[in-house]
């Protein structure tokens, strides 16, 4: 189970448009640093720096393929963020379900008697 700290790191890692674009690209499949750098007006070291932030946050993983180090989405990290947003939705849902009941009462105060 991921703790609060890791989720903080993960959300901070997402707070950058280049890193979000990298994740969007990786969602389509594995890619090398060179392939990832192509759509951006950035050097490979700059992209590598962004990848390091994403890797430290547990959102991106790499494997060894000869001299290449293709990156892919780290399923566990992405799923943890998803799960956590789902929990937050659940807490909000509870409040709004209560609000539904309040609204039903406000709308028809006489029918209930």
């Amino acid at each position: 189970m991921l703790g609060t700290l890791n989720l903080n790191v993960a959300f901070s890692a997402l707070a950058d448009p280049t890193r979000r674009a990298i994740l969007a690209r990786l969602a389509k499949g594995e890619a090398t640093v060179m392939e990832l750098a192509k759509p951006f007006a950035m050097t490979q070291p700059a992209i590598s720096q962004h990848l390091k932030v994403l890797e430290d946050a547990g959102l991106v993983a790499r494997r060894v393929d000869g001299t290449k180090r293709p990156r892919r989405l780290a399923k566990a990290g992405i799923e943890a963020m998803d799960l956590w947003l789902a929990m937050l939705r659940k807490a909000l849902k509870k409040n709004y379900d209560r609000l539904d009941e309040v609204l039903a009462g406000v709308e028809q105060p006489k029918i209930r008697r």
């Binding site: 609060t4 989720l7 903080n8 993960a10 959300f11 901070s12 997402l14 707070a15 956590w84 947003l85 929990m87 937050l88 939705r89 659940k90 807490a91 509870k94």
Partner: peptide, 19 residues
């Protein structure tokens, strides 16, 4: 972004407690 991350994380704890 850091504040947003912290706010969402606090929200998770409340959500977990409810569950």
């Amino acid at each position: 972004a850091q504040t947003r991350a912290a706010m969402l994380a606090t929200g998770m704890e409340a959500g977990m407690e409810a569950s």
